[in-house]
């Protein structure tokens, strides 16, 4: 059996605000296997986004250990973490986070520019080719030269997903990807995630939409920095 994509041991994250310590994550131990579609829900302030950003190597835990594909990440340098984000994972945000002045194609090709530092075989032509393929994959083949302000919210999020996919990531992290969309568009985007998952991409999705979360293969509910329920894996509580 292949090793877990994500494995944490007693992960803590403490924010210090003035004299006050806020325990955003309280001893989280979690394992996610390849190919899982995990929806993390919980009220705001429950720590679900904090957890996702630590798993996505954007934030760092205060204590505890995090293994990514069975490799301990705790001692990785800033540059090594950047490389893993670039080559191993993709991100989708609630606010789309596209570069407003760049076309859809340029936005999607952007991560590949940084891949050039890791992969000497990189060429701009090949990058554009891959960006095109990613846009086709999310159904945006006819909008490649559009800028974000010429696209609807749903279309923007598709471009953002294409950007996350462009480097063929093992795992895709999404933070409230449907939060800025109406329910119809939200469902469409969610369906796209399900398709990607059936192609083998592991998906970790943070949402507060219970209806969407129910369609994931595994639901984790967080409360006050702890996992209060988990429908799958070794931590199954339901």
């Amino acid at each position: 059996m292949s090793s877990p994509v994500v494995q944490t041991e007693a992960l803590n994250r403490i924010f210090v605000r003035g004299d006050e310590e806020i325990r955003a994550l309280d001893s989280i131990s979690l394992t996610i296997e390849p190919g899982e579609f995990v929806a993390i829900t919980g009220s705001s302030g429950s720590g679900k986004s904090t957890l996702m950003y630590i798993l996505g190597l954007i934030d760092r835990q205060t204590s505890g250990s995090y293994y990514l594909q069975a490799k301990l990440t705790d001692a990785l340098s800033d540059n090594q973490r950047a490389q893993l984000r670039n080559q191993f994972m993709g991100f989708v945000f609630q606010g789309f986070h596209l570069l407003p002045k760049a076309t859809a194609l340029r936005n999607v090709a952007m991560p590949l520019v940084y891949s050039a530092s890791y992969d000497r075989g990189f060429s701009l032509g090949a990058a554009n080719e891959r960006a095109r393929a990613a846009l086709e994959r999310v159904g945006m083949a006819d909008r490649m030269t559009h800028r974000p302000n010429e696209l609807s919210g749903g279309q923007r999020q598709r471009v953002a997903i294409a950007r996350a996919l462009v480097n063929s990531p093992q795992v895709l992290f999404a933070d409230e990807p449907t939060g800025n969309l109406d329910s119809k568009r939200g469902q469409e985007i969610f369906t796209l995630f399900k398709e990607l998952n059936s192609d083998g991409v592991t998906i970790v999705l943070v949402t507060h939409d219970g209806q969407l979360a129910a369609q994931a293969t595994r639901q984790i509910v967080m409360l006050d920095g702890r996992i209060s329920s988990d429908t799958g894996g070794v931590n199954a509580t339901s």
């Binding site: 996505g56 800033d78 986070h97 940084y114 891949s115 530092s117």
Partner: peptide, 16 residues
């Protein structure tokens, strides 16, 4: 600032 965040998230190093 947000652009910097996006670039960092998709793999830009501080040096980039």
């Amino acid at each position: 600032t947000q652009e910097i965040g996006i670039r960092r998230a998709v793999g830009a190093r501080r040096g980039d």
